[in-house]
């Protein structure tokens, strides 16, 4: 999948090796890291650690790695889930759920892929019309139109912006 992303940061600051599931360079929240609060940023992010709060990357990719455990609502351009998520998931372009994932929550997205062997129970709101609109350079185009999930983000706590590498495209 290709996408264009402005990448002001020149080099990754994290030394953690990127897993095979992430094709682009991403900031990495490592397996031993625990975050309580809201994460937002303007670059791709791989989470292998634990997050309680929310994650918002409105125009970038978010990957929840196999060791990732999130009790959080997630919003990103594309979201891939290999780990555990307890929360609502809004993928503005696409959500990919893999066979290793465990999800409790609702999914709102214009395009959804459930990989072979994946198990999901819950609600999926699909609106393909928003896939076309979000292909434009405007990152604010939202796919979340009809789910209660989008309004559920009520996390409190310290805010933290993700840091690390800028993103690049494959």
């Amino acid at each position: 999948m290709s996408h264009s992303t402005p990448s002001p940061a020149p080099a990754p600051t994290s030394s953690a090796p990127a897993p095979a599931s992430v094709s682009n360079k991403s900031a990495v929240l490592g397996a031993t890291i625990k975050v309580k609060g809201d994460i937002s940023g303007e670059e791709n992010l791989l989470i292998e650690g634990q997050v309680e709060g929310s994650v918002s990357l409105s125009s970038h990719e978010l990957t929840i790695g196999k060791t990732g455990k999130l009790n959080a609502n997630l919003t990103a351009k594309t979201i891939r889930i290999d780990g555990e998520v307890d929360g609502d998931i809004t993928g503005k372009e696409k959500v990919v759920v893999t066979s290793t994932s465990q999800i409790k929550g609702n999914i709102v997205t214009p395009k959804m892929t459930l990989e072979e062997g994946a198990r999901f129970k819950g609600t999926i709101d699909i609106d393909p019309a928003h896939a076309n609109s979000s292909a434009s350079p405007q990152p604010s185009a939202s796919a979340a139109t009809s789910s209660k999930s989008a309004a559920n983000s009520s996390n409190t706590g310290s805010n933290s912006s993700s840091s690390g590498s800028g993103s690049s495209n494959s």
Binding site: G122, T123, I124, D125, I126, D127, S146
Partner: peptide, 8 residues
């Protein structure tokens, strides 16, 4: 490919 809500 269509606008829908799927509940599993």
């Amino acid at each position: 490919s269509r606008k829908c809500r799927l509940h599993f």
